[in-house]
């Protein structure tokens, strides 16, 4: 337990001193502010552009913005947060393989699975924290400017998206224990997400794939029932767990 905590502490210190923590912190805060800001500025932007639009024959009627528009922005922008997160963390294992820093820690007697757990915990906490900070900021502004109660399935839809992030991180961990370089990690993780996305275009498969969880917009407008999402939610949860469990024996046998 002590060695696990020591390793988690080391990971946290690394996130902090390498600047990754700060970059991600700023990014998620900015994203959180951007969602309501863009929604708020849309009518004003249209007004500014009204004259030129009128010249080209378009009539701009006054638009009313609601919290809905801000939440739409949320689901449009949060992928940027996840992509930045994955890019920044893709070398969390491979950097240690390449520099050889794990060798000493392992010869000090820390069990290999604790290395996997530490890194997973730090990534999961970081993602969770960043994601909910972003959500919290958007929620706060929305409540201040408009009214969040017009939104349907709000909590469920954002939990779905959060879990999608967890699923991608689980893939990142798995590929990190298999691959040697962070390019391979990114290619592996990206491919699985892409395949899930492409298969999701087939109506028959859509409901069974984790990428469905990113379609939060259908939920908040009430276009789709929350119940449709439950299957892919369970599948994402299960595959995340499988990825994590598989990564331990793979890492145990890895030549360092």
């Amino acid at each position: 337990m002590k060695s696990l905590l020591a390793f988690i502490k080391k990971e946290t210190m690394e996130q902090l001193r390498s600047g990754r923590l700060i970059i991600l912190g700023i990014l998620f805060i900015l994203l959180g502010i951007m969602n309501p800001a863009v929604a708020k500025l849309t009518p004003w932007l249209l007004e500014v552009l009204a004259d030129s639009l009128a010249e080209s024959g378009m009539i701009v009627t006054s638009v009313t913005v609601t919290a809905m528009d801000s939440w739409m922005q949320f689901f449009k922008n949060i992928p940027m947060g996840l992509i930045a997160f994955i890019l920044l963390q893709s070398s969390i294992f491979t950097k240690e393989y390449q520099s050889g820093t794990l060798v000493l820690a392992l010869t000090k007697g820390i069990q290999r699975y604790k290395v996997v757990i530490s890194k997973t915990v730090v990534l999961a906490v970081l993602w969770t924290f960043g994601y909910w900070v972003c959500f919290g900021i958007t929620y706060g502004y929305n409540a201040y400017f408009w009214d969040n109660s017009v939104v349907q399935n709000l909590l469920f839809s954002v939990v779905c998206w959060w879990l999608f992030g967890v699923w991608v991180i689980a893939l990142l961990i798995l590929f990190s224990t298999i691959a040697k370089s962070n390019t391979d990690v990114l290619v592996g993780t990206g491919s699985v997400v892409l395949v899930s996305y492409l298969l999701g275009l087939l109506p028959k498969l859509r409901e069974y794939l984790p990428t469905l969880l990113t379609d939060g917009n259908f939920l908040i407008y009430g276009v789709e029932e929350a119940a449709i999402y439950v299957v892919s939610l369970i599948i994402a949860l299960a595959t995340s767990l499988i990825c994590f469990v598989m990564s331990i024996p793979i890492f145990n046998k890895k030549q360092l």
Partner: peptide, 26 residues
């Protein structure tokens, strides 16, 4: 063990690194 090219966590100071090693060994 001291490997031929020892690699430490370069973001730590020497005392921090040793303390980390001590904690890892319990």
């Amino acid at each position: 063990y001291l490997p031929d090219v020892p690699e430490f966590y370069s973001f730590m100071t020497a005392p921090e690194y040793l303390r980390f090693c001590g904690e890892v060994t319990g």
